[in-house]
Design a protein around this nucleic acid. Structure first.
Ligand SMILES: [Mn+2]
Ligand SMILES: [Mn+2]
Ligand SMILES: [Zn+2]
Ligand SMILES: [Zn+2]
Lengths: 142, 142
DNA sequence: TATAATAATGATAATGATTTTCATTATTAG
DNA sequence: CTAATAATGAAAATCATTATCATTATTATA
């Protein structure tokens, strides 16, 4: 059994949620993609193997998967939530190509440090942050 | 006439848009608030002086005001776009209190510099970026 | 294993922000 | 002043997401 499945089942047990075949299939398919994936795209993927699974079930499953800390959402401002793996992936920021939609992941410790410093300056207790850089990726520069 | 009104009328002229009383009133009221304001809130404000102005007109006006670079949108992830002044306000990032909704503005040149460096590293041509830090403001810490 | 309690499901309706449509009104060039 | 056309408000449409509800699946326990 994978770490992720173990974590998921633990979360299910701890929260008086019942097990469900569908939900574990959704988790499996989500974990097998490396995209920043929307509900709609994930539903499409899931339907290929399990055509009977409805959209609402994907919403409900991804909600629980996020609460179990296996996924988190990103919002690039186009009105659609996307999901990415959280387990085994350290915090990172995103470079988002406004032409092709490509999302590049990056991390920089200095930025993180300065952020903390700025929070201290404003007596602000940070719980989370997101840095998104919009522009053109390598391939989309003429 | 204010700088802003001049810029606005120039933009109107350059883009074959007709002048409109309502639109300039919306602009005026928007410029008189210093909040990060939603369409709904702005409509409420506008209705006090001009009860006949409809919601769609606020949407249409703010869209043009943004295109004229007098305003820009921020999206703090609650599904509602907010607008803030752009003219005469340099770029800044936001600390967003997840309890009371307060938005603190901050700017740090080092962060901006590192961002540019990271873009170079990935051959990415930045057009825009946003950094949002979520947490608790001074007043909301117990 | 059978059963009762209850959570999960899919279809569909509801919601909320935003956009579009359309008939009417306002602006503007000539 | 008039014709052309953009702007308007009301209402309908759209789109992502959430809630509802009757049915099905899971699970604890008798
Ligand atoms: Mn990512
Ligand atoms: Mn601001
Ligand atoms: Zn690209
Ligand atoms: Zn606060």
């Amino acid at each position: 059994m994978t770490d992720e499945l173990r974590i998921f089942r633990n979360f299910i047990k701890k929260n008086n949620i019942k097990n469900s075949r569908s939900r574990e299939k959704i988790l499996e398919i989500f974990l097998n993609t490396e995209k920043h994936i929307s509900i709609y795209e994930l539903h499409d993927l899931v339907k290929r193997q399990y055509p009977e699974i409805g959209l609402a079930t994907i919403y409900r499953a991804m909600n629980i998967i996020c609460r179990s800390d296996l996924a988190e959402t990103i919002n690039i401002g186009d009105g659609v939530k996307r999901f990415e793996h959280k387990y085994g992936h350290r915090h990172h920021d995103h470079l988002i190509c406004i032409k092709c939609g490509k999302i590049i992941e990056m991390h920089n410790d200095d930025i993180e440090e300065i952020q903390k410093k700025m929070c201290k300056k404003f007596d602000f207790k940070m719980t989370d942050h997101k840095l998104q850089i919009f522009g053109y990726c390598k391939n989309c520069l003429d």
